[in-house]
Design a protein around this nucleic acid. Structure first.
Lengths: 272, 272
DNA sequence: GAGTGGTCTAGACCACTGT
DNA sequence: CAGTGGTCTAGACCACTCC
């Protein structure tokens, strides 16, 4: 069943110690030379064993300072409650939106405490976007990118890209200009200025590993996936208005979705 | 900016070729000795470079046959629509439930086409479960585990564990017995037999890397994360009735959540 | 200055897949 | 059979951290 390689023996010994709590979060693991001596193997073999645990997300390498059992960082929660809240805000007066906007939160942090960068441009729909937005190939799209950073740590919190067919929004030129960011009340209000009401939001969630460059940009240790969330906003006719792709490091973010259920029409019959 | 190591040079060259489509899905990559010769490095260095791409999920190793650019498998979609559908089914007559039950689907496959294994037992709440279910430490819980397998490929499709305080369901002893599986109509109907109606479901989604053992059990190539979904079922009083933890390989599954929005009370004022 | 991980070399033997 | 990846060794030099 189990491979009887030297590497896998070291890996499973250490993994067991971590899972049993003998090595708790933050505990220092044996160094590469120590393990090599202990198991009478070469340093390379000890190293390979440790790298397996790293890929599993169980330990963190602190370069030239040793390896420790991973301390899971707090996860910020992003909840689908926000969808309705944002919509409710969209029809408030400008003054009210401004006031709430200042207290507006993202990941439980005040928006004012985050550094947002927005970039707008116009691109032509490629095959994938054309299909997703149900428009012709090459259709002009308003592309908006946001990057949010935690100014305390300097770490990236989230990145997202949004696509809207330009024809839907160009009647309000202000929507094409990134200088109007941040737009209190968000996209839902922006769309209300061109007569569009979002009635349904579909979130599609999956995950993948970051590339080395992404891991570096996000300051992610290895062994941590990226959560990928595509949000599709639909109007009352079921027309796709906006597509938005967002990414979050899985050790720092959690996505929460709330589904209210219709009550039963009458007390259920006891059939059993 | 970029590290000028031999390894990173090989990695980024190959990554570029993959991302630019010069090496399409299924294309064979240069072998370790070939790369070593081409870049005038040792085999180990070439190997390390290839392993980086593997960890990024870009390529697949086919042991002793070479490495190929990953062919992304089709993703099965699991939608939150299921929540309401399951609830609707719960109050149908037994005959109706049976009929629908046979056409019932999981991941778009007929339930009949999947091999389900269910295990029931009673455990005592540990600290984490006690907190999540809002019960005292040590409270007896009904634990139910399911494993679903695709009989065509023999591959695991999903695993899940559910916890319910025993006191909530013991008035119907049939609920404590795994021999009654599969229960047409699902948990919602089971709960209806003890007078419980679920009014709200909260899904918490995150991701992590599998351990080596998990990757083997799931037949997952390296570089693929596990999607983790905790489902919390609440009754009309906001009481936590059930907690269910499910896991899916991120390359084969996608989670979809649908949020309907309340219409605006009146046409929005144009404020801009 | 001793210890750590990061990188790299030049070998070796093995088990397996393809022809 | 030649070729592939899987495993492993015994060295080496480096940049950096910690004391």
């Amino acid at each position: 069943m189990t491979n009887e390689t030297a590497t896998s023996r070291i890996t499973s010994d250490l993994r067991k110690q971590i899972q049993d709590g003998e090595l708790g979060p933050g505990a220092l693991l044996p160094s590469e030379p120590e393990l090599a001596r202990e198991y009478a193997v070469s340093r390379q073999t000890a190293r390979t064993a440790l790298q397996t645990l790293e890929q599993e997300g169980l330990i963190t390498v602190r370069a030239r300072r040793g390896r420790i059992v991973r301390i899971p960082p707090r996860r910020a929660v992003r909840s689908s409650d926000r969808h309705q809240e944002e919509k409710d805000r969209a029809i408030l007066s400008e003054r009210e939106r401004k006031e709430i906007g200042e207290a507006e939160t993202n990941f439980g942090m005040s928006i004012a405490d985050q550094q947002f960068t927005a970039t707008y441009d116009i691109i032509n729909a490629n095959e994938e976007l054309a299909k997703a937005l149900n428009v012709d190939l090459g259709t002009p799209l308003l592309r908006r990118k946001w990057v949010s950073t935690d100014p305390k740590t300097g770490r990236l919190l989230s990145t997202s890209v949004s696509y809207i067919p330009k024809s839907l929004v160009e009647s309000n030129p202000a929507m094409l200009d990134a200088n109007n960011e941040p737009w209190p009340g968000g996209t839902m209000h922006q769309l209300s200025t061109v007569g569009i009401e979002i009635m349904r939001i579909v979130d599609e969630v999956t995950a993948r590993m970051p590339t080395s460059a992404e891991a570096q940009a996000w300051d992610m240790p290895s062994g941590i996936p990226l959560l990928i969330c595509r949000r599709i906003s639909l109007d009352e006719d079921g027309r796709t208005i906006e597509i938005s792709d967002a990414e979050y490091p899985a050790d720092r973010a959690e996505l929460r979705f709330i589904t209210p259920l219709e009550p039963w029409p009458a007390p259920p019959e006891r059939t059993n």
